[in-house]
């Protein structure tokens, strides 16, 4: 366990000894990690290792049984936490994009800034234009999600999160539903965000990408943080499980 940090350098995301079960299945078995501001953390591991659940716990899409989660100063593990405040600080992008199909891309992006933050329409539109430019979709304002390719939809979903100006972005296997050629365009956007200093936690299967972009890797196995360290651990794994995972053709 690391030394307690002074509050100015407090980690943006911190999990301490987090436990969670689905019925009799233990999915998180004492998970701890910290993500300092401006860092990118990649969570890797087999399916069923608990990595997506750990990520979803950060945004309180799952509740935990014991342990402590603090995100941007919000005590997420407190059942009485006002969720709205947490979600204003945390952006999340899902594997299945989850754009709103009845709204244009611009409306998708403007909806929350207008309804939640009370921004004026014109101002929200300005933001939509900016974030869409950032993800390379400046010409898709008036398109509906179903008119876009999977990669474009995923980039639009990233833009929608960015428009809320979150402190930290979570990515839950955002390229797993995409063809290899579409994966690249989404990863490039995430890489740009990393370069821009955004704090990010991503669950990913893209080992090359994790190695290139992540400041820190967390390898999860059987609901535990099995091995963690800088990207270099992928080249020199200490545990047999990570060695096997890295060597399994990824």
């Amino acid at each position: 366990m690391s030394q307690p940090l002074p509050s100015s350098a407090a980690p943006v995301v911190s999990l301490r000894d987090v436990h969670k079960s689905f019925g009799s299945l233990k999915v998180l078995d004492g998970v701890s990690f910290e993500v300092p501001r401006g860092e990118v953390m990649a969570i890797i591991g087999r399916s069923g290792s608990g990595k997506s659940t750990a990520l979803r716990c950060i945004d309180r899409l799952e509740t935990i049984e014991s342990g402590e989660i603090i995100v941007c100063g919000h005590r997420v593990s407190d059942p009485k936490l006002p969720l709205r405040a947490l979600r204003l600080d945390v952006g999340i992008v899902f594997q299945s994009y989850n754009l709103f199909p009845h709204l244009t891309i611009e409306e998708n992006i403007c909806l929350a800034p207008v309804t939640v933050k009370g921004k004026r329409r014109a101002e929200a539109r300005e933001t939509a234009r900016r974030v869409l430019g950032q993800v390379g979709l400046g010409d898709k304002l008036d398109s509906y999600p179903e008119q876009l390719s999977g990669g474009q939809q995923q980039r639009a979903a990233i833009a929608r999160s960015l428009a809320m100006e979150p402190q930290v972005m979570l990515f839950d296997e955002v390229t797993s539903a995409l063809d290899p050629e579409l994966t690249g365009e989404v990863l490039r956007v995430i890489e740009q965000l990393a370069a821009g200093g955004m704090t990010m936690v991503m669950v990913t299967h893209e080992m090359g990408f994790a190695r290139r972009v992540a400041d820190r890797i967390v390898f999860m196995h059987q609901g535990k943080v099995w091995e963690t360290g800088p990207a270099g651990i992928l080249d020199a794994p200490e545990t047999a499980e990570l060695r096997q995972f890295v060597g399994s053709g990824l």
Binding site: D59, L61, L83, R84, R87, L88, V90, G91, I92, F94, S96, N98, L99, F100, L111, A112, T115, V116, R160, S161, M164
Partner: peptide
């Protein structure tokens, strides 16, 4: 997931329902 996506954008239950 549509509910979830709206929830993660900090929208209230009523906003999620109506928008």
């Amino acid at each position: 997931p549509q509910w979830e996506a709206a929830e993660c954008l900090a929208m209230s239950r009523t906003q999620r329902m109506f928008h």
